[in-house]
């Protein structure tokens, strides 16, 4: 390839393909999960976070942030929720969990595995959502009465998603991402 570099041509790198593939998987999980009825908005497994954590542990925080935010925008767009309150709650949760994952990713891996990261991210996720809901949607302290529900949700699904991430990382077949192969 010795063609002269075209300044208008966007260079697509391997990481871009990777982000796109992982984001597609995360979006698919989000859309599938939206079919599960939930008693309270916000009480759901958050399966897309499995993908985000997988990317974080395999390719670093930057790509994980891309996948997480692409997922929020694209899934909301597909579900017809974009710029609705639920979208902003989702965005706030994602930003909060990315914010805590940046330092948490530097925890000693020998002691703190994917389950730890997943729990930390899940709590940050519901924390960010609650904070935005308190400030914007329900400006009343009565909202905190819901906290135990979200705390329990974050504990259960945080641990579950973390275990799935640990399992996927441990599987040698899935650990490599071939050029045209499957995303996860």
């Amino acid at each position: 390839m010795t063609a002269p570099a075209d300044p208008h041509r966007v260079r697509i790198e391997a990481s871009d393909y990777r982000v796109a593939r992982y984001a597609a998987a995360a979006i698919a999980l989000s859309v599938a999960e939206a079919a599960i009825p939930t008693p309270l908005p916000g009480v759901k497994p958050g399966l897309a976070n499995i993908v985000v954590l997988l990317v974080l542990l395999r390719h670093g925080w930057r790509e994980a942030a891309w996948v997480a935010l692409l997922r929020v925008f694209a899934a909301s767009l597909l579900l017809g929720q974009i710029f609705a309150p639920g979208f902003f709650l989702s965005l706030a949760g994602s930003l909060a969990s990315l914010a805590v994952l940046a330092p948490a990713a530097h925890l000693p891996r020998r002691l703190f595995g994917p389950v730890s990261l997943s729990l930390i991210a899940a709590f940050a996720h519901v924390g960010g959502q609650m904070l935005l809901a308190r400030v914007w949607l329900v400006p009343h302290d009565g909202l905190w009465a819901l906290w135990p529900v979200f705390s329990a949700t974050a504990t259960i699904f945080g641990a579950m998603n973390g275990l799935i991430v640990a399992r996927l990382l441990a599987e040698p077949a899935a650990a490599t991402l071939p050029g045209g192969g499957r995303a996860v």
Binding site: L111, F112, G113, V115, S116, P148, S151, A152, T155, R167
Partner: peptide, 22 residues
């Protein structure tokens, strides 16, 4: 076997936080 020592610690902390909040 997928749990690491710190994972148990954080899981216990999460459960405790939930129960205390409740």
């Amino acid at each position: 076997a997928l749990f690491r020592p710190g994972d148990w610690l954080l899981l216990a902390a999460a459960v405790a936080l939930t129960l205390l909040a409740g």
